[in-house]
Write a protein that binds this DNA or RNA. Structure first.
Lengths: 345, 345
DNA sequence: TTGTATGCGTTATCAC
DNA sequence: GTGATAACGCATACAA
């Protein structure tokens, strides 16, 4: 009886947060009852009791202690969202969408960024996070190394990555490369190339997309695409293009890893006296704002964030109860991505 | 005695994590001793005991349970980093630097993004996070509303925002505006303007920087800067510029909120037949990659991430022990930012 | 220098 | 239908 819950009626601070015991007292029931009611196991209680408990909880501003709960459950209600370093403009939208999904299943999202430049440090950090937070699950958006994944398995932490059970997961990266190649071909370009970031550490998806472009070329009996490794500075980009052109001739059409690569190549082309899109065509991925405020405007691929995440959302739901299984449909690549026609193709 | 710590010697998974009791048993001491040693209260123990405990902990892979610890301490070892929606390219660097600082004080960083488009949802999420995680502190990088801040105070959660105690905090936004204005003046432009994002929700710092530009103009007895609200699409940007020019004449020099605004204006100028930088000069802020792979290359302001965060790092240290106070120096604006001379001024 | 006892807030089990 | 009680893993005041 040493500390009152709402004791010194609030000089605007420091009040000890209400506990389930406080709620129990206020509602005139036991702590066990409070626990049951607040976990929605209401079937066996009188409607009146349920309401009294809920009212009391509400008016006391009671919030279940994650600590107490985690202690007794063995794991917390948190879900870690692991994001790759890749700096796509809409990371925040991705986070937003996934966060709200996590909340729908009654869990709490927590964000974690991978830092490929310091792989071991990142792994250590994630490891520490998992060990101390003991999250209900980890959602992988591409930042996890095989080592990390093995670790999660070892400690028995659930991994959600959209490669879940049944449903073949849509391979969006392949779809993206394929879309780019098809678009360039449809615009009449006979010779394709793929533009990587020169720094592979920043380019987690590039190879898959390039493979898709290569596959398309093979299928269409076109020459296999030349691979360009484009540095993000003018002179380097120009040099790469300068060396490529004699081997491909013009017009050359480049499917680029992202809008930045596309921009660098377009600029390099202009500095070499080439015309875009006549001599060099580029298509990016991202629909970054900068690509839409330049001349020529970038042709690119835009993602519908919620749809492109639907396989993860589905895996998430499957992993935790699957209550919403029926409402969730995994979007096709056609629904998830669309070509934004600019002036560079 | 029902469950062995390393019981069924690892069929590669599911082993119950070691507890302090396991460590105590292995080291032949009591749980209290383990607790003390592992919290670095080693003064009162024999070197041999300390070592035995540490060895045991290490070989068992023991990790303090955040749950148990948080339960008894009243708060967890987590620190929430609250980031504004602003999509500066180097958010991830910022996160990286602050994360490692947080770790140096022995706490664990967790990231939270504000979403101004859904202010109430964001606040609710942060609120929930604070209530359930009961973090040791919250670091505000500009995403918190006054309402959020009041809430933190109410629940007695420590707020770190660099506006801490002594040390006047460097007003970096004012410095940035000032730098831009000085630079433009030094390059010989007589007429200045300020380029906002047209969508103010995405522009948390704009007003402070514009004020700095205005102050500089006043001080230098220049005409007060015209305010441009630049939409991020070509036609809108062109219109804004088109309407501004008759009121300012050429050459006009615009200090921009970020590189994107600068790019949009430069492109608009070209589409109006103006020469950059002769008729229109722009300077951005961010040193975004895209600004360096276009022609003309953007003049901009680059931040030294660690230095520009030094006031927060200091506040962090002050808030939690202050063990490193002597090593930490808050950087001046001159150290934190530098002009990157491109071809647009 | 070390051990004992207690409490933190929650949930599960079982008795009523 | 409801309540008492025993864990969960840790930190700490206090006893030895």
């Amino acid at each position: 009886m040493s500390r009152q819950p709402t004791g010194e009626d609030a000089p605007s601070g420091r009040a000890r947060p209400a506990t389930s015991a406080d709620v129990a007292r206020a509602a005139g029931v036991s702590r066990a009852t409070v626990s049951h009611v607040l976990n929605n196991q209401v079937e066996r209680f009188s409607a009146e009791t349920v309401e009294r408990v809920r009212d009391a909880a509400l008016s006391l501003g009671y919030v279940r202690s994650a600590a107490g709960r985690a202690l007794v459950m063995g794991r917390s209600d948190f879900v870690v969202l692991v994001l790759p370093y890749t700096t796509f403009t809409n990371v925040q939208d991705v986070i937003e969408v996934l966060s709200s999904e996590v909340e729908k299943i009654g869990l709490s999202p927590v964000v974690h960024f991978s830092v490929p430049r310091a792989q071991t440090a990142t792994s250590r950090r994630l490891q520490h996070m998992v060990e101390t937070l003991r999250p209900a699950g980890v959602v992988d958006l591409g930042g996890l190394s095989p080592h990390d994944i093995a670790f999660l398995d070892e400690v028995g932490c659930m991994l959600v990555n959209g490669e879940g059970q049944g449903q073949q997961q849509p391979d969006y990266n392949t779809a993206i490369g394929d879309f780019q190649a098809r678009h360039l071909r449809a615009r009449g370009y006979p010779t394709l190339a793929y533009g990587f970031l020169s720094d592979a550490r920043d380019d987690p998806y590039g190879q898959m997309r390039a493979d898709a472009v290569a596959a398309y070329c093979a299928q269409e009996r076109l020459a296999p695409p030349l691979y360009l490794r484009v540095p993000l500075e003018q002179e380097g980009a120009r040099k790469v293009l300068e060396e490529a052109l004699p081997r491909t001739g013009v017009p050359l059409a480049v499917a680029c890893y992202n809008d930045l690569v596309a921009l660098a190549l377009a600029d390099a082309a202009k500095s070499l006296g080439l015309d875009v899109p006549r001599d060099l065509a580029v298509i990016g991925v991202e629909y970054a704002p900068f690509g839409q405020v330049i001349t020529p405007r970038l042709t690119t691929i835009a993602a519908d964030v919620p749809v492109s995440l639907s396989h993860i959302i589905q895996a998430l739901d499957e992993g935790f109860g699957g209550f919403r299984a029926s409402e969730i449909r995994v979007g096709t690549a056609e629904e998830a991505f669309r070509i934004v026609q600019g002036e560079t193709t």
